[in-house]
């Protein structure tokens, strides 16, 4: 994409576009800014002048959420569940993706067809049977059940994504490793892993965002308030304290913090994942 293309608008004509885009960006940024500012004031202060800056800044909302409504614990619970699910997905999808991309596999067409056909399965179709299956296995209300569901729903896309990523690794490299006597795991560890590292990182970020933000399974599979994850905790708090906007805003910011940090520091990976998301 060079700048010399004559079919583009002149720099002068680009100014109105730039300003227009700034306005559009403001519609995204301002609500978030409003949430952050609101979270740092008392309810009285908010009602007096919601659009101005707080008269006295305070973090009591955060302390209240953390101490009294179990948001701190929920945050750690979410961190644990998301990290575990993503770790399992990465390991299993790397194995499967590498095999489907580079190794002969019995019935590989059948496997691929299965993964692709369940990839777009809507969550609502699964909630009742998954709840009943996990209940039968006795793991409703246990993180292992929820993690299993996240792994199962995340794997199809993960395998698809890594199969595409690993296909780009040159066969000569793998052949050379084989000649050198490297076995399956050795090749995976010293060639496939490093060569596909950015793809794996992209996948890790996308899957982490997905599990961190997930609501419906977290809601129904972990009914115990002590074990609640962050997203359902936030949803419950938001529904309960309709008239205390500063308090719910603090909850919103805590929930949004991790995704926003990821977007800030890993936007390169997220943007790359987007392109592949399109090609499916």
């Amino acid at each position: 994409m060079s700048d010399s293309i004559s079919s583009r608008l002149t720099p002068r004509a680009k100014w109105p576009i730039f300003i227009g885009m700034c306005l559009v960006a403001a519609t995204i940024i301002y609500p978030l800014f409003f949430v952050v500012v609101t979270s740092l004031r008392s309810n009285v202060d908010y009602k007096r002048d919601p659009f101005g800056l707080p008269v006295d800044w305070t973090v009591t909302n955060y302390i209240e959420l953390w101490d009294e409504y179990g948001v701190g614990r929920a945050f750690l619970n979410s961190l644990f569940v998301s990290t575990s699910a993503v770790a399992v997905i990465l390991i299993l999808a790397t194995l499967a993706g590498y095999a489907l991309a580079k190794l002969p596999v019995f019935g590989s067409k059948f496997f691929t067809a299965t993964f692709v056909s369940v990839m777009l399965l809507p969550g609502p179709v699964l909630i009742i049977p998954i709840y009943l299956v996990l209940a039968r296995l006795g793991i409703v209300g246990d993180y292992s059940g929820l993690i299993l569901v996240y792994v199962a729903t995340g794997l199809p896309f993960a395998i698809f994504f890594l199969t595409l990523t690993f296909r780009a690794i040159p066969d000569e490299l793998l052949e050379a490793a084989r000649v050198d006597g490297a076995g399956f795991f050795r090749t995976l560890w010293s060639i496939v892993g490093p060569m596909g590292a950015s793809g794996i990182a992209t996948l890790a970020v996308l899957q982490f965002l997905g599990t961190w933000n997930e609501l419906i399974f977290a809601l129904i599979l972990v009914p115990d308030a002590q074990m609640r994850l962050l997203t359902p905790t936030l949803a419950t708090i938001g529904k309960r304290f309709v008239s205390d906007q500063p308090l719910t805003s603090a909850g919103l910011f805590i929930s949004a913090l991790v995704p926003l940090l990821l977007l800030t520091f890993a936007s390169k990976y997220i943007m790359r994942g987007l392109q592949v998301g399109l090609s499916r």
Binding site: A96, L100, L103, P104, V105, F111, V133, L148, F184
Partner: peptide, 28 residues
């Protein structure tokens, strides 16, 4: 040999996806 290795590498993922996505749909 390598065909066996490849299949074994796909199998864990397949079992989980079949068990917790494909089967639940049929169960539904």
């Amino acid at each position: 040999q390598s065909k066996l290795v490849g299949t074994l590498a796909v199998l864990p993922s397949f079992v989980i996806v079949a068990g917790f996505m494909a089967f639940p749909v049929m169960f539904a």
